[in-house]
Nucleic acid binder design. Sequence first.
DNA 1: ACCTGAACACCGTTCAAGT
DNA 2: ACCTGAACACCGTTCAAGT
Lengths: 220, 220
Amino acid sequence: MVASVNSRRRSRDDVAGMALHLLDEYGLPDLTMRHLATALGVQPSALYWHFPNKQALLAAVSERILAPMAEVSGDGTSMHDAVRAVGTRMRECLLAHRDASELVSSSLALGLVSSPVRPRLLAAARLHGVPDALAEVAAEAVMHFVVGFTFHEQQRLAADQLGLLPETAASNLGEARAGSPADADFAEALTMIAHGLEVSIAQHRDVQKTRRDELSRTAG
Amino acid sequence: MVASVNSRRRSRDDVAGMALHLLDEYGLPDLTMRHLATALGVQPSALYWHFPNKQALLAAVSERILAPMAEVSGDGTSMHDAVRAVGTRMRECLLAHRDASELVSSSLALGLVSSPVRPRLLAAARLHGVPDALAEVAAEAVMHFVVGFTFHEQQRLAADQLGLLPETAASNLGEARAGSPADADFAEALTMIAHGLEVSIAQHRDVQKTRRDELSRTAG
DNA sequence: ACCTGAACACCGTTCAAGT
DNA sequence: ACCTGAACACCGTTCAAGT
């Protein structure tokens, strides 16, 4: 059923690629070393030549899922926009693959994959003269919110697809449509976090200014 | 090694209680139906009289972990304080038990346990005349941030305990000390979210006022 | 009402040995 | 360098049968 069961040797990338394919097709619970090996036309033990263990394999898959994050940068008009752009993009990455948020959440928590939010928010901060420390705090808030929100969202989607809902039904179409209510909730909460960052920046500037004033007063 | 292997019948609560005990003692990966049964002096299949499956059992454990949330209420001086109080309390609940955030995260995502943040923030909102919708959005942001942050924090702790760190070492003592750097990061990010809520509230009030003004203008 | 015994259908991982 | 074959030490869950 799945292609490439011929006798050619597999590369590390082939393995990760097939794993991502199986993830989309059958979901995380069925992404087992044994199924993956079968799909590649190989014995399960063969996978351990390419990856030391399953978690390492899943980390490689996580990196593929987050790859499109490279395309977004915080070069917007403000930190506010950067937070929204990066957060929105990350949710898109996670929604693009089945069970991706659960997978990425664990890779991130285990430290096997680095935050895709942090470097982009740091870059934006430097562009706008905002201290790194504030960007780091915002990056944590954004990343955890996005992963948590999308995890919740995706788990509900998976439950729906198993036909566990009573009335409203699976809202048809596996793909999340553009105007979903979750979209609005997500956007609102993300905006709230962005607002919080702006307040923190303003407070920081106030403190700086007060310090300067005191300094010039004692000096003058 | 673990008590209560006598012949008395077990209640649902006994099972959940022992599960929480095993969680603290051996961690989530070793919290298996078989280990739990052994600790209770019972066959694995016996557990399925008390719970339909493992996830339901884990949901019961999650509820025990979150039980202390009942003690906190949003009756502080402001919404800002309510957000901080509830968020801080939730993190304390999760840090009080090994691997608790991973466990609770999945129960929450599966919808087997309801948000402990939502009702408390809603209560606070009513007290302060803030619309429910804003409290709901804030509740989502706070909950996901807290769970995500603490998940990350706890996973690092678990890794440390397995002696996987090179230098700084496991910062001794399994218990998280009061002055940990994670505490400060957490507090800062939570404050940022609280600030964001305040901005959203202010914006809402502005919109309301503008509407009232326009109304009285067209009416007068 | 609560539990046993036995089975079913799986897992991830290791490791000597092959090519 | 890359993979096979076979095993090890596990899982969650079901279900007839017992008391």
